Amino acid sequence: MNGALRAGVIDVHAHWLPRDLLALPPGNPLGGMHDRDGELFLGRAPLGFPTAAMTDVDTVVADTRKAGLGARVVSAPPFAFPVHAPAEADEYIASYNAQLAAAVADTDGVLVGLGLVRLDDVDAARRELTEIAAAQGVAGVAVPPVVDGRSLDRDAPREILGIAAELGLSVLVHPMQLPRTEWDHHYLVNLIGNPVESTTAVAAVVLGGVLEELPSLRICFVHGGGCAPSLLGRWGHGWRSRGDVRRGSTRPPAESFSLLYFDTITHDPDVLELLRAHASPERIVCGSDYPFDMAQPDPVGFPLGRGIDAGALEANGRRFLGLTPMDASR
């Protein structure tokens, strides 16, 4: 990543989208996002926060400082992932990435960006990722955990992870709230769906040998990795017991798990402790999910209150972003 970053704890998981892109990419089934009297809606559903918190850079910067953070990494909300009609989304992706670079450049090191990329076309993705790698203040991309029913260990998404690793770009994996009939009430599409999507992607990367092929890949899973910390022992048993589980990887799941980054949004101190028991202490990073209603309201205080050092969170965030000591000196 080009450019310096403000000192302090880095929130790697927050969202921003310019107003002119609220309609969302071509083919989206959600009706787009829109402002109604200062509040942001997704289709007919209110999102529960001011439109400015998603779209206005000055508001995001002010809220970042108010939260006691040094810096915040912003990416598009998952509704804006170009997955429904990707071949028609090139203009949307290019506009988002260009506006993102311009927006973070004017924040004096408070904001860092993660761009959008097509996940269906490797050649198109290489062009987009090459442009992102040259952009000031943009460290990588945010991607969904599942594309067309498959996760990150297969087909184009796996090749695209390889390009990101080759270019030194960070990858944040964010769930999309994929609908299922049994999750159509109680907000289960988020409360269950989001963790399950993240868990699926963690399993795919770990059991698919992705980091064995791409040891330099910096990849972070939000919401504490979903259910993955509680399932790691089960995966390890399956890896030792079954050839079909072992087929994609040469090392036990726990070994690869320790090479992944995870944010601290667990909403439960005991779950955060479970994550800490399995993840590397150098790969746990601060997250907030700003500005959504499921966000961690005190992104700094929550991990600090559970014994995670602020200096470690800052160092881990910089490590995930690929910052060198010279970049970090500001």
Rank of each mutant, 00 (worst) to 15 (best):
I265P: 08
T266S: 02
H267G: 09
D268V: 09
D270Q: 13
V271M: 12
L274H: 00
L275G: 04
R276S: 12
A277G: 14
H278Q: 15
A279E: 06
A279H: 03
A279L: 02
A279F: 01
S280I: 08
P281W: 08
E282T: 14
E282R: 15
R283L: 04
I284M: 06
V285S: 00
V285A: 02
C286R: 04
C286K: 04
C286A: 12
G287F: 00
S288F: 03
Y290M: 08
Y290Q: 10
Y290R: 10
D293N: 11
D293M: 11
D293L: 12
M294G: 14
P297T: 07
P297N: 07
D298W: 11
P299S: 08
P299K: 04
V300F: 09
P303V: 07
P303T: 03
L304N: 10
L304M: 12
L304F: 07
R306K: 13
I308H: 06
I308S: 05
D309V: 08
D309E: 15
D309H: 11
A310E: 13
A312G: 10
E314W: 05
A315E: 14
N316H: 10
R318A: 15
R318V: 07
F320A: 06
F320S: 05
L321S: 04
G322W: 02
L323H: 14
L323D: 07
L323N: 03
T324A: 13
T324W: 05
P325C: 09
D327E: 14
D327F: 10
D327G: 12
A328C: 12
A328D: 10
S329V: 14
S329M: 13
